[in-house]
Design a protein around this nucleic acid. Structure first.
Length: 439
RNA sequence: UCCGGGGUAGCUCAGCGGCAGAGCGGGUGGCUGUUAACCACUAGGUCAGGGGUUCGAAUCCCCUCCCCGGAGCCA
């Protein structure tokens, strides 16, 4: 007699039939002559419940099955054969009446319990913590956000450009880069941005983007920082700062819309207040840096013109707004060398930051790039950057220079915002922080 | 690097100068519809490490290490 193999997702199509389920034990309860195993296999019942209850009755199973049910441990892997039944008492509406239960992989002393744990303990056990329903939901949302990012740009005919991770030249400022020896060529750096390379590609293909891991050796210890994180960086030829912000707005709205459309069950598991995401519709607010300083000082901030926005300033700026807000045209001193000087106010550069609501902070930094050879060279010298390392970058202004703009969106900050998770180390499968390199 | 909080059972924590504790998890037993099930019993400790004060230190003081949050910097 053959038994049909089924996943939890497929169970509802087998009501009344006997099936075989391969799964892990998420929880268990036993009551003398009846035992309940809560099983998970990475799929979900029709209502989104990511687990199913297997009911083991003493009289219906062989001795080995009964002993296995009563000696269950968290996260043991099991094979269950039994009849699928719709039952209102079961979470998700379906359950399995077990005929035979076999433990495939025992799990004595599984370290994680269904209770609160501290962050250090959980990250020490990240390889096991990933099995938790909440972590599964977060990783699914992350997948949806990544898919949305690729779809958005593919549909708009942007070409994906894979930029190098090992690099000799540098992106913004030296000093906070990871270094490694590179044969006879001296020091190589792990890329902290792909921007300079997508600028080169934009002159070949028009609209392009890169999407991959980037590395920062900053000794930041906050809930918004990782040493390895993922960033998507579009670069658009013949586009100015205004056009840049228009794309950013459409892009963020697209991601939010996709998560709301395809991630409902996961947002439910995470108990995310979806009305907060539904409010994120264009147009977003826009304020110049100068207006923002006045606004913040009116709300009690001590910020003075010329300083970048601090964490508290970001909170003051976004706390009363249901939507993200753009701040544009920052002082030159507060920003990177490659940003285009503002012709209407040379103290500032044509750039923008986008701040997410609910305290999630900066998710995008973008700018129009300096396309004038002499001005760019002057800026490189002003910043004391190694001129020779930027030879090829200057070539882009020497041969057919063109106005162009781009931005970087931090994947983890965006996923954290979508999920309502304040610590971004929880939204990447294996986080790298200043004092964590394993697992 | 700086500022603040913390380190007690496998985990989450209470105890803050006088016998080392609870809940969860583990083990044993009970219970035929449980929903982080429940009930009883039980095992489990370098109170982060070192030094000092005291009749007596998990508790007070000093040093070191580690973790968390924030600042700076950024996505």
């Amino acid at each position: 007699m053959s038994t049909t193999r089924s996943t939890i997702a497929e169970l509802s199509g087998h009501a009344g039939e006997e099936v075989e389920l391969l799964a892990w034990v998420r929880n268990f309860r036993s009551s003398g002559k009846i035992a309940f195993l809560i099983l998970r296999d990475g799929t979900s019942l029709p209502d989104g419940t990511p687990e199913v209850q297997a009911v083991v009755s003493r009289g219906d199973v062989d001795e080995e099955s009964w002993e296995a049910a009563n000696a269950a441990h968290y996260e043991a892997s099991v094979r269950v054969r039994g009849q699928v039944r719709a039952d209102a008492r079961a979470p998700g509406g379906y359950e399995l009446s077990v005929r035979e239960l076999r433990v495939l992989g025992p799990s004595a002393d599984y370290p994680i319990q269904p209770k609160e744990h501290g962050p250090e303990f959980l990250h020490d056990h990240r390889h096991l913590w990933l099995r938790h329903p909440r972590q599964v939901a977060i990783l699914r949302i992350r997948d949806e956000v990544e898919k949305a990012i690729r779809d958005f740009f593919y549909d708009r005919h942007f070409t994906l450009i894979d930029t190098p991770i090992l690099t000799g030249s540098i992106g913004e400022e030296a000093g906070e880069l990871f270094e490694t020896e590179y044969f006879d060529l001296g020091t190589a750096y792990l890329a902290q941005t792909g921007q300079l390379y997508v600028e080169a590609a934009a002159a070949a293909l028009g609209n392009v983007y890169c999407f991959g891991p980037t590395f920062r050796a900053e000794k930041s210890k906050t809930r918004r920082h990782l040493t390895e994180f993922w960033m998507v960086e579009p670069e658009m030829a013949w586009t100015d700062s205004e056009g840049n912000m228009a794309v950013q707005e459409a892009f963020v709205a697209f991601i939010v819309g996709r998560v709301l459309e395809r991630g409902r069950a996961e947002l439910d598991v995470l108990e995310r207040d979806v009305s907060k995401l539904e409010a994120v519709t264009p147009p977003f607010d826009r304020m110049s840096y100068t207006e923002t300083v006045e606004y913040l000082r009116g709300k009690g901030s001590a910020i003075t013109w010329g300083e970048d926005l601090g964490g508290e300033d970001q909170t003051l700026l976004t706390e009363d707004r249901p939507k993200p807000v753009f701040v544009y045209d920052f002082p030159k001193e507060a920003k990177a060398f490659y940003m285009k000087e503002n012709p209407e106010d040379p103290r500032t550069v044509k750039c923008d930051d986008l701040y997410a609501p609910e305290g999630f902070g900066e998710v995008i930094g973008g700018s129009q790039r300096e396309d004038d050879f002499d001005r760019l060279l002057a800026r490189i010298r002003e910043e004391g950057l190694p001129e020779e390392a930027y030879g090829w970058y200057l070539d882009l202004r020497r041969y057919g220079t063109f106005p162009h703009s781009g931005f970087g969106l931090g994947l983890e900050r965006t996923v954290g915002w979508m999920c309502g998770v304040p610590h971004i180390r929880e939204v990447i499968p294996f986080p790298r922080t200043i004092n964590r390199l394993t697992p």
